[in-house]
Simulated assay, not measured.
Amino acid sequence: MSPQLMNIFYQSHAGSWFFTLLFFGVSYFMLTKQNMKAQKITHMILRLFFVIMVVSGIGMLVGYQFSLVFVIKGILAIALIGLMEMILVRTKKGKEAGKLWIPFIIVLVLVLLLGFNVISF
C-alpha cells in the first residue's frame, strides 16, 4: 500500500476518533436536556463517524498487514462502539447505564494506548 494512501487512512481514522468522542459527549449531555430532536441529530452524526472510523480502520489493518496489535485494537474499538451505543440508548430509554461506564473507560484507555503504541507486543 502506498504511503500516501496509508496517510489518508491514518488522518481520517485519527480525526474520526476525535469527532466520535466529541459527538458521543454532546449526544450524551443532550439527553439530560429536553431537546430530543437535537440529540437525535447528534446521535446520527455519531453513527456516521462510527462508519468512517471502521472503514478507515480496516484500511489501516490492510496496510499494516493485519498486525496482531492492531487486530486487537480493532476488536476493542468495535466493543467501544457497542458500549457507546448501549450507554446512549439505555440512558435515552431511562434504564440503568451506570454499570457500562467502567468498561467504557477501561476499553477507551486500552484503545488509546494501543493506538499510540504505548502498549505493544
Rank of each mutant, 00 (worst) to 15 (best):
L76W: 01
R47N: 13
I58N: 04
I72C: 01
S120G: 10
K73A: 03
I58R: 06
N7M: 14
K40L: 07
K99I: 10
S2L: 08
I102Q: 05
I75E: 09
M44A: 14
P103R: 09
G94H: 02
I58T: 11
F23E: 09
Q4N: 12
L88W: 06
S12T: 15
I87T: 01
V89A: 04
I106W: 07
K93A: 05
I45L: 08
I52R: 03
I81H: 00
V26T: 07
L48R: 07
G94P: 00
I81Q: 01
S12C: 09
I87C: 00
A77M: 11
L100I: 11
F49E: 09
I105N: 06
L68I: 14
G59M: 02
K99T: 11
Q34L: 04
M53C: 10
I72D: 01
W17I: 12
G63H: 04
M30R: 08
M36N: 13
S56V: 11
A79H: 00
M53A: 10
M84R: 05
V51T: 14
L61D: 15
I78N: 00
V51Q: 07
F49Y: 09
I52W: 00
H13K: 11
Q39E: 14
I102L: 11
V89K: 15
V69C: 02
Q65R: 13
N7Y: 08
I58F: 03
L108K: 05
I41M: 04
S67T: 13
S56L: 07
A38I: 12
G74L: 04
M84Y: 01
L21N: 12
G57L: 02
F66Y: 14
E96M: 08
V107I: 14
Q34I: 05
L5F: 07
M6Y: 10
L110S: 07
W17Q: 11
K95P: 02
F24N: 05
Y64A: 04
K95C: 04
K33N: 12
L22T: 15
Q11R: 11
L21M: 13
L48M: 11
V55M: 10
G94M: 06
I106N: 09
L113I: 06
N117Y: 15
Y10L: 15
M60P: 01
G115I: 13
L31W: 00
L112W: 03
L5P: 07
F104P: 03
M53R: 07
A79L: 12
S12N: 11
M6T: 12
F66W: 15
G15E: 06
M1I: 10
S120Q: 14
M84H: 02
S27P: 05
H43P: 01
S56F: 04
L48E: 06
L100Q: 09
L22M: 15
T32L: 09
G63F: 02
L80D: 03
L31V: 05
Q4D: 14
L80Y: 00
F121L: 13
F29I: 12
I87F: 01
Q34A: 08
S12F: 12
I41K: 07
N117C: 05
M60H: 04
N35Q: 15
Q39C: 09
L31G: 05
M84F: 02
M84Q: 10
S67V: 13
I81V: 09
L21Y: 06
K99G: 08
Q65W: 06
I81G: 03
K93D: 10
I52H: 00
K92Y: 10
R90E: 12
H13F: 05
K73W: 00
M44T: 13
R90L: 06
